[in-house]
């Protein structure tokens, strides 16, 4: 629903503790997202949010471990080992019945057959066993991340990002890029060796599309062009050149190479010329975005660049 990163929500973060917990959860090295074995180690998992489900006290580790055994034996065939569901039974992590349950009391009637008409068969399990299963299920649901992200790592391992045709990609490079870039070492804005700089296809593609090999996931072109080369020509014909700090309808601010800040009221008779180094790649991305095969061209170029090691 809401995007917490979007500026329009201001500093739209979850409060205090929750934030810390979520950041903690971003740390690498988290146990693999089960997909066949939820919570491989049913020890206390990292908490990832500050909803009731994330913060409630969990059962003792041995209870959770026993609950997992019972779950695997009686429930996993339909609801999947990671609780995220199959064609035979829905995702239990997002079950309102589970989230509102305290100690198994909302799960007991369901296991006893209250949802038989939906294909949830009555199971002959003792109340204690159902409550133990519930304790395990709560320990998995406690790992749900911000904005309803599923428990476990957020990325499926081994995704193949480079799927394009490198031969077609060379032709696409010649058509779309060679006017500004050479593939030869030492050539104009050379892309030689770029394939060796990146471990993964996503970083390579993000780098060349954004035209910045300095980072892999960042955005460009926001922030009003801060840092771009600018030349201001004053009414008397004098000029000042430097790096842009701010430019809007009312003021223009730049720093000259001697690190001095200069600011001007736009009402004065000024001509402001900002050079946008992103312009070439903005045009490129816009063009690719509007072409039916634009994504294919992008994938092919990425496949070609990956061969430039």
């Amino acid at each position: 629903m809401l995007r917490l990163t979007k500026w329009t929500f201001g500093v739209a973060l979850t409060v205090g503790l929750g934030l810390a917990v979520q950041l903690g959860a971003q740390a690498p090295g988290r146990a693999g997202r089960g997909r066949g074995a939820a919570g491989a180690a049913p020890a206390r998992p990292a908490r990832r949010g500050n909803y009731e489900q994330n913060m409630r006290p969990l059962a003792a580790p041995e209870v959770i471990a026993h609950g997992k055994e019972l779950y695997d034996a009686n429930c996993a065939s339909c609801h999947a080992a990671d609780m995220l569901g199959s064609d035979k039974g829905g995702n239990l992590v997002a079950s309102q019945n589970l989230l509102n349950d305290q100690n198994g009391e909302l799960i007991e009637p369901i296991v006893a057959g209250s949802q038989a008409s939906f294909g949830m068969p009555a199971q002959t399990l003792s109340k204690d066993d159902v409550d133990t299963i519930a304790a395990y299920m709560h320990s998995v649901a406690a790992q749900v991340g911000s904005q309803g992200r599923p428990p476990g790592p957020q990325e499926t391992p081994g995704l193949k990002v480079i799927v394009g045709d490198a031969v077609a990609g060379k032709a696409d490079f010649d058509t779309n890029c060679s006017s500004c870039h050479s593939a030869e070492a030492g050539g104009q804005r050379s892309v030689a060796g770029i394939g060796a700089k990146y471990e993964d296809g996503r970083s390579l593609q993000n780098a060349w599309v954004s035209g910045t090999t300095g980072f892999s996931f960042g955005g460009r072109g926001g922030g009003g062009g801060t840092g771009n080369p600018v030349t201001v020509t004053m009414a008397n014909g004098d000029t000042l050149s430097g790096k842009l700090v701010t430019e809007n309808e009312f003021v223009v601010v730049l720093t000259t190479p001697d690190d001095v800040r200069h600011s001007f009221d736009r009402d004065a008779n000024l001509t402001v010329k900002v050079t946008d180094p992103d312009a070439a790649h903005k045009d490129l991305v816009l063009k690719l975005s509007q072409e039916p095969n634009g994504d294919t061209v992008m994938h092919n170029v990425t496949a070609y660049l990956a061969t430039l090691k």
């Binding site: 992590v93 599923p150 892999s216 903005k282 816009l286």
Partner: peptide, 14 residues
């Protein structure tokens, strides 16, 4: 689940 499952790259503002 929820808003999970994607990442973005090479964001350009127009």
């Amino acid at each position: 689940m929820g808003l999970g499952g994607t990442s973005g790259g090479a964001n350009f503002s127009f």
